[in-house]
């Protein structure tokens, strides 16, 4: 099929030539319509999505006028600034010293919830906190063993039940055990679930209610983990999860790949959920605070 061949060659070319093209296009040249289109394409290629990209471009056009920007280089810098500003300030994870702090980690299957918990456990252990993890995924095969290994690596406490147990019961036990042990930070892992499965979402709601009931005002963060390779569906994920649990922040994982996670711009525009931390690898130390400026910068790299 000739169509395939054409397509294949085309995509290869696009990928390699795209950034060079943008560079050539933007440097020193006067601003024209084509430049805006190329920038829009760039955003779309990074999963920002048509709607969010259109919003950014609208702001860009307005500011170009206001600030009398004339050339392509200025245009690019301005777009970076707009993106970075739209994502707001750096927002650290909330922790209140001297009390029990609970982080609930949620998301669809395979995005990196358990790994992120391992990394967080290590980070806060190193900061001198007493940390416990709860194996709230009793569904996926060997999920609690996986968390157990992370708990060992980080040297933190673990609460887990047998496979197939009620996750709400695990959380109940964990909260009480954390109290008894005077734990500073309890990290609750949950099973991956697709947001369109209402029974699984209700189970999550139940976990949250248990936490609220057994440890009022201790649920400090509800972190939605989003895989950077995810496309537009992440927007729906954010919306649906936020309806069940009060999502306080996004963890953007797998940024060590070639995907840049542009969809979080759209999530932030629509849901006003800040991105708090990022995953940049599979090692326990591969966790960083999210930096809006760096993130915006990365969209234009390579």
């Amino acid at each position: 099929m000739g169509f395939f061949q054409k397509l294949k060659a085309g995509i290869e070319k696009t990928r390699q030539g795209f950034m060079a093209q943008i560079d050539a296009l933007l440097s020193g040249r006067k601003i024209d319509e084509e430049m805006y289109e190329e920038l829009e394409d760039l955003l779309i290629m990074h999963d920002v999505g048509v709607t969010a990209a259109t919003n950014l471009l609208r702001d860009l056009r307005r500011l170009v006028k206001d600030r009398k920007i004339l050339d392509g280089e200025g245009l690019r810098l301005l777009l970076k600034e707009i993106i970075s500003n739209s994502l707001g300030e750096k927002k650290p994870l909330r922790l209140e010293p001297g009390t029990l702090n609970i982080f609930l980690v949620v998301g669809v299957n395979g995005v990196g919830k358990t790994t992120t918990i391992g990394k967080l456990a290590q980070r806060y252990k190193e900061q001198g906190l007493k940390v416990m993890v709860a194996a709230g995924d009793t569904f996926r095969a060997a999920a609690s063993s996986q968390l157990e290994i992370w708990a060992e690596r980080a040297g933190v406490y673990l609460v887990s039940h047998a496979d197939g147990a009620d996750p709400a019961a695990v959380v109940f036990d964990a909260v009480h055990s954390a109290r008894a042990k005077k734990i500073d930070l309890l990290l609750v892992d949950t099973a991956g679930r697709l947001h369109n499965k209402s029974n699984l979402m209700q189970e999550l709601g139940k976990i949250r209610r248990i936490i609220d009931r057994e440890a009022e005002h201790s649920l400090r963060e509800v972190l939605l983990v989003v895989d950077a390779t995810t496309g537009q569906n992440a927007l729906v994920q954010a919306k649906e999860f936020a309806q069940i649990v009060p999502v306080t922040g996004i963890v953007l994982t797998k940024l060590d790949g070639t995907a840049k996670g542009g969809i979080v711009i759209a999530i932030n525009q629509e849901q006003k959920i800040p991105i708090k931390i990022i995953g940049v690898g599979e090692k326990i130390s591969d966790l960083r605070d999210f930096d809006p400026q760096e993130f915006a910068e990365a969209l234009f790299e390579k």
């Binding site: 995509i11 290869e12 999963d47 390779t229 995810t230 569906n233």
Partner: peptide
Amino acid sequence: VDAMTGQDAVNVAE
């Protein structure tokens, strides 16, 4: 491949 993959799917597959 995860059905929810975005634009990067082509890079991965290729």
